[in-house]
């Protein structure tokens, strides 16, 4: 992946929330790039900071949130320091968002066609109402809503969950965005509808040349849609790589644990699921070292106190784990082979 093609760069993002109980450090130093035309998946369990990362990009977090450090660069502009007025031009226009629950993100009092029209009027300068209406109808057609002319006049409650999500997608894409942030857009839907929406998103990515940040907890969905994946845990990146690299050569104990805890349809039923013991760390007082050490079966003393540095495995694959260091002991180390082959200068995938 080369830097020349990146449309969005997130550098050392730290986001925290002031709450009654104290300061919750939701995102604790996350850096990544979104390349042009790719679908970047951000996966992790609830509370790992994946949604906060995404919402930080457009600064749509609640009042008690603060961006402690970091930059988010889009077209040379830092979105975190951009004046509100200028941010508004980007938000919903060049960078748009699709949320999990279409019922709460659509206005219940407004016809869906008008809602899309409103987004178009907001973000396109000098467009006439007639043109906006035409565009809005076009979008409904594009996301395969049957009979768009009559659906244009429907209220959100008259549509099913899948149709509402299609409306959300139509709205998000109505202003020809370059970047779309999708936060668990299929989580609330049934599998057959989820499949329809995933196919639609795939089609839209191809035809509109979008760059997408796709947030999900579902590894199956990641495999289905994403080109590259970031695994988050406790507000930090654990592993980053292409989807194939991550699923075939998981190089962080957490990623391995996640993959072992889901049953596969082709799995032998005798095999027991391998859950990750314990629960995620408390982000009011996050651990100093690796956030995963308390649940990691390979943890060593160094993991408690020292945050691991990034270890580059291939051009696109990197992991934050002490066990991957060249000087890591070889016993009880799942990566003993990888580190050995790296010493000999062999590529990871043979």
């Amino acid at each position: 992946m080369n830097n020349g093609d990146s449309v969005l760069q997130v550098e050392n993002l730290k986001t925290s929330f002031r709450t009654k109980a104290g300061i919750v450090q939701a995102v604790r130093g996350v850096s990544f790039e979104l390349n042009k035309g790719e679908v970047l998946g951000i996966v992790g369990e609830s509370g790992c900071g994946k949604s906060v990362t995404a919402m930080s990009v457009l600064r749509v977090l609640p009042e008690n949130a603060r961006h402690d450090t970091g930059r988010i660069l889009y077209m040379g502009k830092d979105l975190l320091t951009l004046p509100k007025k200028e941010l508004r031009k980007i938000r919903g226009g060049e960078i748009s968002m699709i949320f999990q629950d279409p019922m709460t993100s659509l206005s219940p009092l407004m016809k869906i066609g008008r809602q899309i029209e409103e987004a178009i009027l907001q973000n396109t300068q000098g467009i006439s109402k007639q043109d906006a209406r035409k565009k809005s109808l076009d979008m409904l057609k594009k996301v395969h809503i049957p009979d768009p002319e009559s659906r244009y006049n429907c209220y959100p409650h008259e549509l099913s969950g899948g149709m509402r999500q299609r409306v959300m997608i139509a709205m998000a894409l109505s202003c020809n965005p370059r970047v779309v942030i999708a936060d668990e857009p299929t989580t609330a839907l049934d599998v057959t509808i989820q499949k329809q929406i995933l196919l639609l998103l795939k089609e839209m990515c191809r035809s509109m040349d979008l760059s997408v940040i796709f947030i999900t907890h579902d590894l199956g969905v990641v495999a289905e849609l994403c080109d590259r994946v970031i695994v988050l845990y406790g507000g930090l990146i654990m592993e980053e790589g292409t989807a194939v690299e991550l699923f075939e050569h998981p190089s962080h104990p957490y990623t391995m644990g996640l993959l072992d805890s889901i049953p596969r349809l082709d799995q032998d039923k005798g095999e027991k699921l391998m859950p990750i013991p314990g629960s995620p760390p408390d982000l009011l007082a996050p651990p100093d070292g690796c956030p995963f050490y308390a649940r990691c079966k390979y943890a060593r003393r160094i993991c408690i106190h020292e945050k691991p540095d990034v270890i580059t495995l291939t051009e696109s694959h990197s992991s934050f784990c002490h066990l991957l260091r060249e000087d890591a002991p070889k016993n009880n180390n799942p990566f003993a082979d990888i580190t050995k082959s790296r010493e000999r200068g062999e590529p990871e995938n043979g």
């Binding site: 057959t192 499949k195 579902d218 199956g220 990641v222 994403c226 349809l265």
Partner: peptide, 14 residues
């Protein structure tokens, strides 16, 4: 149809 809709955690398969 239900089986075909389940996302398979295998990017090569997908």
């Amino acid at each position: 149809g239900l089986l075909a809709s389940i996302p398979v955690p295998d990017p090569r398969y997908a």
